Every structure is written in C-alpha cells, then in structure tokens.
Simulated assay, not measured.
Amino acid sequence: MKSFKVIGIIILGMIILFFIYAIFLPNEVVTEKEVEINAPVETVYDLVNDFHQWQNWSPWFDTAHEVTYVGADKGVGAVMRWVDDKDKVGERSIKTSDFPNSIIVVTQFREEHSTADMTFEFSSMSDQKTKLTLKFKMESQFSYPFGRYIAWLIQAGVDNSFPRALVNIKDYAEKEKSDTLDYKVIEEEFAVSNYLLIKDSSAMEVMDKVMGKNFGQIMNYIKMSGLEVQGAPVVFWQKFNPQGISVFWAAMPVNEGTKVRGRVENFKFEGGKVCKIEYFGAYDKSAGAWNTLDKYIADKGYTMNGAPFEQYITDPVTEPDTTKWQTNIYFPVK
C-alpha cells in the first residue's frame, strides 16, 4: 500500500508540474528573422510574390506531395493549396502585395482550424542589395494547458524552418543575380524609324491579351493603308509595374507615316545611341537582362534618353520552344 501511495504522490506531482509549467508557455507563436541579400529588391520580391517560385526556396515543400495553384498568377488573390505526406491539407494566399515594401501571406491549416500571418518586409539598401525581414504570428486557439504545449512545439518548428527559408531565398536570389553576368551588352546606333502605334495600359495577368488585340488592330490598319511592315513588333515601356498597371506603346515599324484615325497614332523614333541585349527565353524571365542593362549604363555613366523598348524577333505562334524566343531589349542612352 505504501508503494502505491508513493506512486500516486509522484503522479500527482507530475500532473501539478505539467499545469504549472504550462502557465509559463506562450499561447501564441511569434518570430522575426532577417537576412541581407546581394540582389535587387525586384528579384527578391518576385520570389515571394509568385507562389510558383516558392518551390525554389521554401523548406515547407519538403513535406508537400501535392500542390495546386488557383486564383491570380501572383500578388493579391494568388492561392497555393497542398496536401502533405500525412494527408493534412493547408492553404496559403497573398493578402496584401505592396511593391516594393511588403507582402502578407495568410496560411490556413484546415485540420487544426487555425490561421497564421507571414509578413515579408523588403528594404532596398542599394541598387544591388536588399534586407528581407520575415515576421510570423499565429494566434492561438491554443487553450490552457494542452494548447500551450502545442504552441511550444510549433514555435520550435518555426524557429528551425524560418532561418532556412531566408537562407534559401538569399542563395537563390544571388544565383539569379549572378546569371545576369552572362548577358552581352551591345552599344550601337538605332536608325530613325516610323511606327504606327496604340498607347495602352494593363495589369500583367492580362497583358498578352491586351497587346495581342492592339497589334491586331495595328496590322489591320497597315493593310487598309497599303503600308509595308519594316521589321518586328516593338513595345515602348513608358511605365513598367509588375505588381500593378504598366503603361506601354504597342508599335509596328512601317515604311512611312500615314493619315491615322481612332486609337492608331503615328510615331517617329529619332534614333540615336542604344545599349542592347539579345535575350533568348520566355518573356517573364527577362529580368536578368534588364538588370544587366541597368547596371551597365550606371557603370558607364550613361543616362536614359527615352523609354526602353523591346523588339520581338521570334513569333511565339510559330515557335513553341520558349528557349528560342529572341527579344532585343534596348535602352536609349546619352
């Protein structure tokens, strides 16, 4: 009987300690980590703002065996859903996207009926350096006492995975930046050219449709006017905003100006010195070439002498292989 009493006292003591210790455990999961990355803020921002890019750096992909993407391609409205190796279902969505300052990602864990906010804050330290701060907060349905221990275990997992996430982002962004060194910049004189163009604006997710419609209208106008096309289609970028509305001129080079009406306008490019890169690849992967041109003209002490423009040499309708798509990117300089 005495031994049973001792065992009972020990068990009671352990239970009391269990409840007492739980008092000092947090009822929420909070962490904040940061890293300095030798890459432009645009490069780092896109790695977070596009869920398709998360597979390149996210440590949480290690346990996901089924991932689907719905909603917007990137930015607000983009959603990523997954089923992990234990058949648990989760979902992440981009709540806010404020380029170049911050992104808030909301994570929902269906089995636990809980949500968490991840805030990515971006600070441009220079043209080629960015500080990324990652904040995490999970409000608890962590009731006392058992929920406190659950929060403690989750906190340990967060403290382990978040530094890995930041290191992975740093490594991938800096590798992407180093890839820009492979581009060759050509300095040349661009000839005086006549264009028929349409001025327009669009968000990135519908850009291809808007441009396609504009070029179709221009080509119809050229045929009706009896003009001759003098080269590949061109887009003059008046304002480029991957997270919002970009302003551009869709243009076709023609042999001479003509009387115009409606949305179609005449434009004469006066020519002059340009810095050019002959880029091969998908249109949405050309950031490295643009970054290279930015750095090149800065190093040379040049200033921009007009809007940058792209010349689309390859027709994607007839060439399905994106690695063969040639786009000449021009920066007019002086």
Rank of each mutant, 00 (worst) to 15 (best):
M1T: 04
S3E: 12
I11V: 15
I15A: 15
I16E: 13
F24D: 12
F24K: 06
P26E: 07
V35F: 04
I37C: 05
I37K: 08
N38L: 09
N38Q: 14
N38T: 06
P40L: 15
T43K: 10
D50S: 12
H52M: 08
Q53S: 14
Q55Y: 08
N56G: 01
W57M: 10
W57S: 05
P59S: 04
F61E: 12
T63W: 02
H65F: 03
G71C: 01
A72F: 01
G75L: 04
A78E: 03
R81W: 01
D87V: 01
G90I: 05
E91W: 04
S97C: 13
T107S: 14
Q108A: 11
F109N: 08
H113S: 11
S114L: 13
S114C: 09
E121R: 03
M125A: 09
S126W: 13
D127T: 05
Q128Y: 07
K129H: 08
K131G: 03
K131Y: 01
M138L: 05
E139Y: 02
S140R: 00
F142H: 02
F142W: 10
P145C: 03
F146W: 01
Y149G: 08
I150N: 11
A151H: 05
A151I: 09
K170I: 11
Y172R: 15
E176I: 06
K177E: 13
L181Y: 08
E188V: 00
E189T: 11
L196C: 14
S201Y: 03
S202M: 05
A203E: 13
E205L: 12
M207A: 02
M207T: 02
D208T: 07
K209R: 10
K209P: 00
K213M: 10
N220R: 02
Y221M: 09
I222M: 10
S225P: 03
V229M: 11
V229T: 15
P233N: 05
V234E: 03
V234R: 09
V235H: 00
Q238A: 03
P242C: 08
I245G: 00
I245Y: 04
V247I: 07
F248L: 00
A251Q: 02
T258V: 09
T258Q: 07
R263H: 06
N266C: 04
F267S: 05
K268L: 14
F269P: 03
G271W: 08
G271M: 09
V274K: 03
V274R: 02
C275L: 15
K276M: 14
F280R: 10
F280H: 14
S286Y: 05
T292L: 07
K295R: 15
A298L: 14
K300A: 15
G306M: 11
T314M: 09
D315P: 11
W325V: 13
T327W: 07
T327C: 11
K334L: 12
